[in-house]
Amino acid sequence: MISIDVWNASVDFPIFDAKTRSLKKRVLGKVGGKIGTDSKVPIIEALHDINVSINSGDRIGLVGHNGAGKSTLLRLLSGIYEPTRGAARVRGRVAPVFDLGVGMDQEISGYENIMVRGLYLGMTRKQMEKRVDDIAEFTELGDYLAMPLRTYSTGMRVRLALGVVTSIDPEILLLDEGIGAVDAAFLNKARDRLVDLVKRSGLLVFASHQDDLLLELCTSAIWMDEGRMKMQGSLREVLTAYKGRDPYSNVSKETLERLEAPALSGD
């Protein structure tokens, strides 16, 4: 049974090196979480009162402006951050694709990075060796896989990371906005694989600012604002409320038909 349940969860970051004095005035800017100064160490209240229940088959988009807590929420859902208050329960094998600059070793080759990521995601070396060819074919990176990762462009890194997570049949797929860096042709290919994955097993949570990507991958959405969940509902409702206009208004008819199909079967 694959699910993520979060009850009244908050995530507060202690900021040890910030000068308390400069934060004396309680900052309530538009960007970022609230900065509290109640304790000795200033804290950033990145998330509060998160209540969410995600089940197998769900494809959820996360929207909200910069610093609204999308990435932090993804890390909460992955189990990297355990809530400072409240509780969270993650059931299933998590495969995250977050910031692509970090979490990958710049100096080792693409092949070795595939291996390390696979091992991290709970695979054995043997299982990964079987999948390497499949990943190489899917990512279309070819001989580049023998090069150190520092020679890769951002898009190529996204391809590598997506190649790994889609090849291992993860149960919980968490994607941060970085994956928008790939070109349209690859995205089409990736979309089919991702939708297929979620259908077979598991769930997807995807944070993005790009409407087209969200429409391709998600059926429902959560709108994050200042670390709170402002709205949760179908993707169309949430995007309409967030953007102030219907996201489907500038989508061609063919695309619309294509998009509607998996959405209906998902519900």
Partner: peptide, 8 residues
């Protein structure tokens, strides 16, 4: 980097 990006 790894701790913040991959749950382990």
């Amino acid at each position: 980097g790894l701790i913040k990006h991959l749950p382990a």
